[in-house]
Structures are given as structure tokens and as C-alpha cells.
Computed example of a mutant assay.
Amino acid sequence: MPEPLGDDLVLLFAALASTTQAEITAALADAGYGDLRPSDGYLVQHLQHGPVSIGDLAGKLGITAQGVSKTVIEMERKGYVSRTPAPEDQRTRLVDLTEKGWAAIYATRRARAHVNRELRAALGSGASAFLDQVRHLAENSGALAALSERRLRP
């Protein structure tokens, strides 16, 4: 006999992640970044410390260099990233964030902060205890380490 949906933590977390991501995506669209997809964030997270080669991005994302190149070309066309030759090897292309890419990051951070405030308000006085329990689950499952080390994959 299956558990009632309201008791299935995996489904509850998945549903919460889906609805909050939709709220953030809508806020980004309202801010002028409606052409960004949630999956673009997986690439962008690896560019925040400076330019990265296509090959290195592929390794970090666990996909092929061709797959990364396709995403980079699309994001470059939209103005979020740029590609330049590496100084030490002109055949290697380095991907870097543009001003528009950084602006989208800041807009995403603002949207996430807003959603976090709403969630905490909905929890009321129990927010701190709930966050401690969720953090405990994330630590024990390895999810927090994967997040901190930017190893989450689309």
C-alpha cells in the first residue's frame, strides 16, 4: 500500500522545488530574463569565479564538450556569456559572464531571497527548527556537500 502523498518526503520536496523554481523563473521573466532556463544556472554557477574552458565545463557538468558548446553558443547569442581564445592556446575557448550574465545572477539571487522570505513567513515561529531539520537531512544525504561543491547536475 503506497504512502499518502502528504507523507512522501521525496515527492513533497520535489513538488516544493518545482513550484518555487517556477516562481523564480516567473520573477526572472518579469525582470527581463525570460529567455533563461533553470538548467542554464548549472553552467553559470561555474563561471562566477572567472573564465572556464569548454572542456573544463563539460567535466564539471558531467556532459560532453559538444553539449556544453551548444548551451554556450545559445547563451552567447542571448548575451549572457562571451567566448574568447585562451592566451596560452588560441584553439581553446574560455567562457565568461557578460554584464547581462551578472545582472541575471543578481536578479536570480533577489528572486530566491524573496521566495525564501515567503517560505519562512509561512512557517512562522517554526522556521528555524524546520531549517535545522532540512539542513540535517541535506548533510546526511550528501546533498549539502554536492550543493556547496557545485556538483549538482541538471
Results as ranks from 00 to 15, higher is better:
88 E>C: 04
85 P>D: 00
68 V>P: 01
40 D>K: 06
113 A>D: 15
65 A>R: 15
3 E>S: 14
77 R>T: 11
9 L>K: 07
123 L>W: 12
150 R>S: 03
16 L>T: 14
73 I>P: 01
87 P>W: 08
59 G>D: 13
72 V>C: 01
5 L>S: 14
17 A>K: 03
86 A>V: 12
12 L>D: 03
127 A>G: 05
22 A>R: 15
128 S>V: 12
136 H>A: 09
119 L>P: 04
51 P>V: 05
87 P>A: 14
85 P>K: 00
58 A>R: 06
46 H>L: 03
21 Q>L: 11
112 R>F: 13
11 L>Y: 10
13 F>P: 00
12 L>F: 01
134 V>G: 07
48 Q>N: 01
2 P>Y: 12
31 A>L: 02
26 A>Y: 10
6 G>A: 12
100 K>T: 09
95 V>S: 05
135 R>H: 07
40 D>E: 02
149 E>Q: 12
2 P>F: 11
62 G>K: 09
45 Q>E: 11
83 R>M: 15
51 P>Y: 07
57 L>E: 01
26 A>Q: 09
142 G>E: 05
95 V>D: 03
86 A>M: 13
50 G>H: 06
114 H>R: 15
108 T>A: 13
123 L>Q: 11
75 M>D: 00
42 Y>W: 06
108 T>Y: 11
76 E>Q: 14
35 D>N: 11
101 G>L: 04
15 A>Y: 02
143 A>W: 03
23 E>L: 14
97 L>C: 06
132 D>R: 14
80 Y>M: 02
62 G>P: 10
1 M>P: 11
148 S>V: 03
81 V>G: 03
96 D>C: 09
123 L>S: 06
154 P>M: 04
69 S>C: 02
95 V>N: 04
57 L>R: 02
10 V>L: 12
72 V>P: 03
91 R>S: 12
145 A>K: 08
20 T>H: 08
145 A>I: 07
144 L>G: 00
43 L>E: 00
73 I>E: 10
126 G>I: 05
108 T>K: 14
109 R>T: 11
47 L>K: 02
64 T>A: 05
40 D>A: 08
21 Q>P: 02
125 S>C: 02
80 Y>W: 04
22 A>T: 15
62 G>L: 10
70 K>M: 04
118 E>S: 15
66 Q>L: 12
26 A>I: 07
79 G>S: 03
133 Q>C: 13
66 Q>K: 15
118 E>D: 12
5 L>W: 07
151 R>M: 08
113 A>N: 15
133 Q>L: 14
100 K>M: 10
66 Q>E: 11
141 S>W: 01
67 G>E: 10
65 A>I: 09
21 Q>Y: 02
51 P>Q: 10
25 T>W: 06
